[in-house]
Amino acid sequence: MDLSALRVEEVQNVINAMQKILECPICLELIKEPVSTKCDHIFCKFCMLKLLNQKKGPSQCPLCKNDITKRSLQESTRFSQLVEELLKIICAFQLDTGLEYANSYNFAKKENNSPEHLKDEVSIIQSMGYRNRAKRLLQSEPENPSLQETSLSVQLSNLGTVRTLRTKQRIQPQKTSVYIELGSDSSEDTVNKATYCSVGDQELLQITPQGTRDEISLDSAKKAACEFSETDVTNTEHHQPSNNDLNTTEKRAAERHPEKYQGSSVSNLHVEPCGTNTHASSLQHENSSLLLTKDRMNVEKAEFCNKSKQPGLARSQHNRWAGSKETCNDRRTPSTEKKVDLNADPLCERKEWNKQKLPCSENPRDTEDVPWITLNSSIQKVNEWFSRSDELLGSDDSHDGESESNAKVADVLDVLNEVDEYSGSSEKIDLLASDPHEALICKSERVHSKSVESNIEDKIFGKTYRKKASLPNLSHVTENLIIGAFVTEPQIIQERPLTNKLKRKRRPTSGL
């Protein structure tokens, strides 16, 4: 017993010596996670971090007073192994002897410093981030199933929210409404489509400006004509009531908005009720001829604005009016007729031209339509002016008669200019590109209106002035400009410049 007691005391002394060697000089306990400095002193990692955080910048070693920084600290694995072995020896000594260790306080702390507990403390002390800490805590505590279930439920809930957000973003663009038309193969669909197009076009005519009305009406008319041609002859009974509906809707729209509806009346003529396609083609032919005449008058307007600064050229074209007008009339009417003589009366030419125009518009179905009313009214106005011209010709002399006839021709041009508003800008460009020769010939008609105004002003003063002067240069210039014009009389060319000069002198006297 005595020997055993001596041996136990010796073992205890050895353990105490080893414990003092492996103590931390700051906390005076076994080193936890030993860290060595540049001066080869060993301290606990937790104690050194606490010391360095007390001051900004480098701190001093507690043993040798040298500078220490966080970067200079290094882990010493050898001392950590020695500490672990010492703890194992102490545990074995207690089991063999059955005696508690003399320094129970220190031993209890040593026992608490088992490797499992050290790992837990290291995970908390090290600044490795929240995710690494959570992982280490889960690994160190596998015995708690409640914690695992809560963490898994949190992760699953987070994943569910992310997935639901993604699915919502994908589903939202798919919620856009999609309209699908289910059509049938019955023959009544074509008639319904035609009526739908006509009503939609009328609404567009009321909303859209004048520049786009003609294009819309032309497209709708083409669509309706194609649909009529596709149907068989057996379905004509269905077409006639639908066309009557079209007429009623167009008349109502014309009564409500007459000014807006006139812009599309000329282009919509071939959508009118037709028994066969031949009647629609004839109407299209007549409309094309009318559009040609209207576009020519538009060309004359532009030329008149350009040549208004040259009064000499405008005056020299006075007698070329009849010849150029004959050529335009021959090209406007498709019928083959002989040219009228140069010395014939211009009023007779106008009456013949009106007689040619009237039969074209005397179809029984055309008179029933609303768009032809505008053309009939313009023709009636022309006839009224010609009836007035006959009365004026009986009273005035030959020279005054010529000037009045020219004035009436200008009035006719004004009437025809009203129809110019109905034609589109695209048709003007096509006419100029296809028929430049006709445009040059028809330019002379509009330029002549300037000389007509001068004659009217001469009649106000009650006299006409003449001068025997020749202007050969002007006649040559005008002959080169206009290709299809005829030779003019030299006496009238000489008379016109004198009248304008005298007018300039006598205007201030009349004002006084």
Rank of each mutant, 00 (worst) to 15 (best):
D2H: 03
D2Q: 11
L3E: 13
A5F: 15
R7L: 12
I15F: 10
N16I: 04
M18W: 01
L22A: 03
L22W: 02
C27W: 02
I31M: 13
V35Q: 12
H41R: 00
K45F: 15
F46M: 08
N53H: 02
N53A: 12
N53Q: 14
K55C: 15
S59R: 12
L63A: 05
T69G: 12
K70L: 13
S76I: 01
T77K: 14
R78L: 15
S80V: 05
F93W: 00
T97M: 01
T97D: 01
T97E: 00
G98T: 04
G98S: 07
Y101K: 06
A102D: 07
N103Y: 02
F107R: 15
A108E: 10
K110W: 15
N113K: 11
P115M: 04
E116P: 06
L118P: 05
D120N: 04
S123M: 14
S123C: 08
I124M: 14
I124D: 07
S127P: 14
G129N: 06
R131V: 12
N132V: 02
N132L: 03
N132S: 07
R133M: 07
K135I: 03
L137K: 00
L137W: 09
L138Q: 02
Q139C: 02
E141I: 15
E141K: 06
P142H: 07
P142R: 06
E143C: 03
N144Q: 06
P145N: 07
P145K: 14
S146G: 09
L147M: 04
Q148R: 09
L152R: 10
L152H: 06
L152T: 03
N158T: 15
L159P: 03
T161H: 15
V162C: 11
R163V: 11
L165F: 04
R166L: 07
K168C: 04
K168A: 10
Q169C: 14
I171S: 14
Q172S: 04
P173A: 11
P173T: 04
T176W: 02
S177C: 00
Y179R: 09
E181M: 14
E181I: 06
E181A: 03
G183K: 14
D185H: 00
D185L: 08
E188A: 06
D189L: 08
T190V: 08
V191E: 06
